[in-house]
Design a protein around this nucleic acid. Structure first.
Lengths: 155, 155
DNA sequence: ATATGTGCAAATCCTTTGCACGTGC
DNA sequence: GCACGTGCAAAGGATTTGCACATAT
């Protein structure tokens, strides 16, 4: 989604929910959509401040749930202590493959996930809301060296 | 796995790793295997103290990774802030279905997970270590009432 | 005008850690 | 005996929150 479309959608969402369109919220959205890979709340704060220096950490943390609920940003929890975020794509049927050697994260299509969620949930009398699939892996070629060539590139 | 078998396996693992068999570690293992559902570190501490009052929170936190690495306990992170644990079963090919209304957690067989992890990893030049699949869902019949009949039963 | 939003700093929550003492091997 | 394990309390890191001020509508 383009930043233009994202901004439009965000403003519509805020208005629709009776929330206010503030310069800080727009700066944070702008910063999020400038990212090309997964980012943390802290990294988002840095980038948002480059756009609007008045943005505070608290507002970033308060805005992330809004962007997530409006499906503009996707939240990814790989169990690393801090949550990661990503400008949302159309599909929610995406799995993460995380290299434990170098922390690279690949977003991979997993179209069967939704089917599985529905099938299993209905058997339990539940209605699926979302599903997450995550694979942890090592770099094959370099595992024997006990280090990964990409180790310095923290994804 | 019976507690007897678990204790034997744990002692073997500790010895094999050059770690010591202490009364605290045994009490914590005992407490873990007395659980019938998912438990937190804090709950484990409570139960372990009922067996050996000298057990400290620090030791529980230091023992959990040992039990996890020895495959006696399985760690489940549903992104709720605190990690959950479970006496391990044979299969690692298990998905969690979490009811967001009442926090019940169902462990469901998902035999294709391992296959998916291997397939996808090899395409990326990676070797899979583990995979997690989690489905979030609502109680169908009670979602309209905005509450769940099991809400008080924190799983 | 007024209900929301914001920045700041303190608080919270789970988990980890430094240190001096205790204990399995 | 000595290295490893332990309890305690303090530290740590990510996220949340109370409050007084600012601002969108």
């Amino acid at each position: 989604m383009s930043i233009v479309a994202a901004r439009k959608k965000f403003q519509a969402y805020l208005t629709d929910q009776g929330l206010r369109v503030t310069s800080q919220r727009l700066a944070i959205l702008e910063a999020a959509f400038a990212q090309t890979k997964h980012f943390t709340a802290e990294q988002l704060l840095d980038h948002a401040r480059a756009i609007d220096s008045s943005v505070s950490r608290a507002t970033v943390y308060r805005t992330l749930p809004i962007m997530t609920e409006s499906a503009l940003v996707r939240e990814v929890d790989i169990g690393s202590g801090e949550k990661l975020y990503l400008p949302a794509t159309n599909s929610t049927q995406v799995a993460q493959v995380v290299c434990v050697d170098c922390n690279r994260i690949f977003e991979i299509s997993a179209p069967f996930m939704e089917w599985y969620g529905s099938t299993v949930s209905s058997k339990l009398g539940l209605k699926p809301v979302s599903q997450r699939l995550q694979v942890s892996a090592n770099c094959i070629a370099f595992h024997e060296h006990r280090s990964c060539p990409n180790r310095t590139k923290q994804a």
